[in-house]
Amino acid sequence: MAEQERIQKQRTERTESSAATDDVAVDAQKGEQLKAELDDLLDEIDEVLEQNAEEFVRNYVQKGGQ
């Protein structure tokens, strides 16, 4: 039964993947855009990051909660 399901699923995936070329292109384009945004963020991140990362991280101590 489980085996059957798996075969069925693989078949569906195969048909879907050939029909989904457009989606992949859209994904890739979106990935490019996100990559460019990440580069921009990395350019400015040092201004946003706490000056003294060591102290900032060390001093963040919480009492446990739920």
Binding site: Y60, Q62, G64, Q66
Partner: peptide, 11 residues
């Protein structure tokens, strides 16, 4: 969590 083993929740 605080990175030091103390956790608190989002329920």
């Amino acid at each position: 969590s605080d990175g030091k083993g103390n956790s608190y929740g989002t329920h």
